[in-house]
């Protein structure tokens, strides 16, 4: 068994790492990481806008975002991917690669989840900060920019990292629309070998485990450091700001 696994790894590591490149599009683990990083990079600013929309006093901003958040919480990601696969080529009129479709879905999905984290972070700061800023003459956007968001977003850093880990796990669903990622590469290996599916998928599981565990560990260490620093700035309140935030980011 172990020999099989070592042999498979030895023969196919390049395929698993970068897919069929240069004989095809970039794939494998590299593509998985690029897809995840790009999704988070785009989802993060979008999530701030969504959170502010949800907190605003205008219903025409609040309602669509609230609907979006409930839909992403209530509908399986797989279903949303099918929707994207159907709508994105339709709306852009062009032949869109599955990577782009997956990216779009993940950006909207993660932004909706992250916006709840931002919103919770802002609400957890309490009225006092906004009142103090207003009493000094800051307008709403000034207060947000200089007082509220710097605090809420700094507290969010561990959450962003754990959402990055969640995104890496979510990319596996691209399998159903043939996104050339690590899972797809593994299934290609399996289709070539045919007789060692357990070994192949065990390797797949171990690779994902290694990556996700390391990133989670980094997030955990960062969170400890942030909590310690915030406890110095803020008394005991810091711990309660970060705690509820982790739960929301567990999706898949």
């Amino acid at each position: 068994m172990i020999n099989d696994i070592v042999a498979i790894f030895h023969d196919y590591w390049l395929l698993l790492l970068i897919g069929q490149y240069p004989n095809g599009p970039l794939g494998g683990l590299a593509n998985t990481l690029i897809l995840s990083a790009l999704s988070i990079a785009l989802a993060f600013p979008l999530s701030i806008l969504l959170a502010l929309a949800r907190l605003s006093k205008w219903p025409f901003l609040r309602w669509p975002v609230t609907v979006l958040v409930y839909v992403t919480r209530g509908v399986p990601l797989l279903m949303l991917i099918l929707w994207s696969y159907f709508l994105v080529p339709l709306l852009t009129g062009a032949d869109v690669p599955s990577f782009v479709t997956m990216l779009t879905t993940l950006v909207v999905y993660q932004a909706a989840f992250l916006s709840e984290v931002v919103r919770a972070g802002i609400v957890a700061l309490g009225h006092g900060q906004m009142e103090a800023a207003k009493a000094l003459g800051h307008g709403y956007f000034g207060a947000m920019r200089f007082v509220i968001l710097p605090q809420a977003l700094y507290n969010m850093i561990p959450s962003i990292l754990s959402t990055f880990v969640s995104t890496i796990k979510d990319t596996t669903l691209g399998y159903v629309i043939n996104v050339p990622d690590l899972t797809f590469a593994a299934s290609q290996v399996n289709n070539q070998l045919l007789t060692q599916p357990f070994q192949v998928f065990l390797i797949l599981a171990v690779i994902y485990y290694g990556i996700c565990w390391s990133l989670t560990h980094v997030a955990y260490r960062l969170e400890r450091r942030i909590t310690r620093r915030r406890a110095g700035l803020n008394g005991v309140r810091a711990a309660t700001v970060i705690a509820p935030v982790k739960i929301i980011s567990e999706q898949l």
Partner: peptide
């Protein structure tokens, strides 16, 4: 928690 759920299912059904 660190292995994607889909991969876990694949390991069960295609592997085990």
């Amino acid at each position: 928690r660190n292995v994607p759920t889909l991969v876990q299912l694949m390991l069960w059904y295609f592997g085990i």
